[in-house]
């Protein structure tokens, strides 16, 4: 393993260019891909800490499990479809030489993002619905956590949508940059990650 070899060698013994004339990054991925991976790890830490807090707070005694509105299921479906669309965009983009707004990759990318927007709107509606039925944010710690977890998740998705919208706008404006291929790829990875997080959160919220 080269990383192991790197950190165990004796640098004072070696003079010269050990790797030839090429410089050698630690990971054979683009900088953007590595940064996204690190960011997803950070986001995982955030959600893990929220879940740890959730379970600790749950044990205190005033916890009343909440009934999840059915619309959350519909929202989940939207997010799954959104992820599927972005994955299709990745697959199509590999087959297409140029990506434009009317290409399959471009269309899938656009629809995927719009479905994510619909998910955000749907979550907002769920919050309204809960508040109307007396299950506001203060009503019970279980409800408080529902608002907290969903809003932090939505905040992460909005960050992804900000990147998506920038690319979507330049696609609409007719740009066919090679850069889109990577953006589509990275957006898809991030979408899948947030879908996995959401399914995990939903499972916990619905079962406790």
């Amino acid at each position: 393993m080269s990383l192991y070899r790197d950190v165990t060698n004796k640098p004072w013994d070696q003079v010269g260019l050990p790797d030839g004339i090429e410089n050698r990054p630690v990971f054979a991925v683009s900088n953007e891909r590595l940064a996204l991976t690190v960011f997803m790890i950070i986001a995982s830490v955030i959600f893990s800490l929220l879940l740890v807090s959730y379970y600790i707070r749950m044990g205190i005694g005033d916890w009343v499990p909440m009934s999840i509105p059915t619309q959350v299921w519909a929202n989940t479906t939207l997010l799954i479809l959104s992820s599927v669309c972005l994955q299709s965009a990745v697959v199509f983009s590999r087959k297409q030489s140029t990506i434009s707004v009317v290409s399959r990759a471009g269309l899938s990318f656009g629809i995927g993002g719009l479905l994510a927007v619909a998910f955000v709107v749907g979550q907002y509606q769920v919050w309204g619905l809960l508040t109307e039925t007396g299950q506001g944010v203060r009503s019970n710690p279980a409800n408080s956590f529902f608002y907290l977890l969903t809003s932090v998740h939505v905040a992460h998705l909005l960050g992804g949508l900000w990147v998506w919208s920038k690319s979507a706008i330049s696609l609409i404006q007719g740009s066919t940059s090679e850069h889109f291929r990577q953006t589509i790829n990275l957006c898809a990875i991030y979408w899948h990650f947030l879908l996995a997080v959401w399914i995990g959160l939903f499972f916990v919220l619905a079962n406790t």
């Binding site: 990383l3 790197d6 950190v7 060698n9 004796k10 640098p11 010269g16 260019l17 050990p18 790797d19 004339i21 090429e22 410089n23 050698r24 990054p25 630690v26 990971f27 900088n31 590595l34 940064a35 690190v38 960011f39």
Partner: peptide
Amino acid sequence: LNYVTTILQARTRGLTLMR
């Protein structure tokens, strides 16, 4: 994110981690 990515990925030729 910048510091980590730069150190891991963009070091110049011959600059191994242990250098």
